[in-house]
Design a protein around this nucleic acid. Structure first.
Lengths: 282, 282
DNA sequence: TTGCTCCTCACGTCACGTGAGGTGGC
DNA sequence: TTGCTCCTCACGTCACGTGAGGTGGC
């Protein structure tokens, strides 16, 4: 019969740990002095403690270990617990791997420019949108503003006619490189599911009503400032994507967080979110 | 000016998180209504939040992020924090890797025998021991008991003569395979540092006094039961070592947790720890 | 008046580490 | 009597999730 101090040295665990396992009901001393509450352990208890420590070294929680050691589980249940834990570990490692890569890129950026990019990119998932839109090829960059204005105007006119409320205005760019002409542009608004279901069938020639699917992975950046500078943000976003070994898989989305483009007061103070659906390169 | 609910949707973070960042001083609303305490955010605040989230995706703690975002750190400090985190992540991944391997072996054991080995092996480090010992080649297994008894007797006699207290009795096996004869055996006791320093120079021909070095990594198993069965435990320990891709790097240590071999009352109820210093195979 | 949003506590998480404050045995 | 070991609370950890209980605005 050994007191807790010696036993903890033999077993290479802290006294606190032994006490903790006692109150948890995971590993109790052989005998407790009723008056002093001193815990006394026996040497034959060591193998059981070792079993517990071995399970802990697999990353299992104490609750799980209690299950495995107190009740005796079937092999099937045992396998299942271990398999589950294995998957958890795999996820964790992937997670750490990702964090590592992000840090590496950041360190690289610091070396490179002395300053990280003005924009921060994050990855996220986005839900589906119920869209109403007008899509056109805009021949030259000079005509861009006029075209966009016209397109949103037509769009809102149709929406008003059909009494549809706008949740969120956005724009879609159907190109993935920097081109000089013939921009495939889509002016769009997201509407509520109710309005969508109600009007899905009244589409006109030039008005599209459709579901933009959800994306599990979009790279996203937020630009706050002048409208003119959106292209710089977009450039940085593309740079980030290639640096992190992703590839675009869909059109660029420009979410008009500032409100409506045609109601804009000051084009030098807007806020938009740029999103590009991506996937990891193999 | 946006209320917390909408802002949290735009930013894809929970309301609770925004409140938490507020009280931490990491990210405060642009304006707080004094009467209601309602938090109001501005769209231009989104980029800052995004920067915070990007740093969080590198696995940094909120405290660290506060440092990086509120005070502006030098590039050197920044690099240092990221490097530190990188090392942490590397350690974590190694840890997870180890846990994975342990689980794999366990699963494999279940498949194999339907039952895991009776013994649990754990890895640990052991400190140095101040040893006094007698080492001999024991010609045959039949002579083992007599030899051991004699050796411990001689050892204790010498210890008594020199008034040395015994901390722990142990045995060292200087072989790593199962051999049939000529066992290189060492009967030893660990003594206190004081006694060690005091007697280091009075060694006799057959008595060795020396420091058994600390080991960073020993594979250890505890056997509780009959003395006869120690060889089975040793066998399982060797099996574990090779299964987990380790190799022995030193003599086997048999720690006599039960007390003194020559005072043993019941050889069917002993407790010993077997330790083998190991290293990972490359 | 009824939902909806917002608010402030405050507990719980996981496996202990770390005092605080007090008591038996040599 | 002085250290040493042991005891029982109880707080702290990290980044929030999750109620509880209550209040303004449509």
């Amino acid at each position: 019969m050994i007191k807790i101090g010696v036993f903890s040295q033999l077993a290479q665990v802290s006294i606190r740990t032994l006490r903790h396992y006692d109150v948890m009901g995971l590993f109790k001393p052989e005998f407790i002095e009723p008056i002093t509450n001193y815990r006394y352990y026996g040497l034959e208890q060591l193998p059981r403690l070792t079993r517990i420590l071995a399970l802990k070294e697999m990353g299992l929680t104490l609750e799980q270990i209690i299950q495995m050691v107190n009740k005796d589980l079937s092999n099937t249940q045992l396998r299942e617990m271990l398999n589950t834990k294995q998957k958890e570990l795999a996820d964790q490692m992937e997670q750490s791997q990702l964090q590592m890569e992000r840090i590496k890129v950041r360190l690289w950026q610091i070396e490179q420019e002395g300053k990280p990019s003005a924009y921060e990119v994050i990855l996220k998932k986005v839900p589906t949108y119920n869209l109403v839109s007008i899509r056109k090829i805009i021949p030259t960059i000079q005509e861009m503003v006029a075209y966009r204005c016209r397109m949103y105007k037509d769009l809102y006119q149709w929406l008003v006619e059909h009494h549809i409320k706008v949740d969120q205005e956005l724009a879609l760019y159907h190109f993935q490189e920097f081109i000089e002409s013939n921009f495939d542009f889509e002016a769009a608004v997201a509407i509520s599911r109710d309005d969508y279901e109600r009007t899905i069938k009244c589409s006109k020639d030039n008005i599209a009503i459709y579901l933009l699917p959800e994306e599990d992975l979009v790279a996203s950046v937020i630009h706050s400032g002048a409208f003119m500078q959106v292209s710089q943000a977009l450039f940085d976003l593309f740079k980030w994507i290639s640096l992190h070994n992703y590839s675009p898989t869909g059109p660029i989305r420009e979410i008009h967080l500032f409100g409506h483009e045609n109601d804009l007061v000051d084009p030098n103070s807007i806020v938009v979110e740029l999103q590009i659906p991506v996937m990891k390169n193999k």
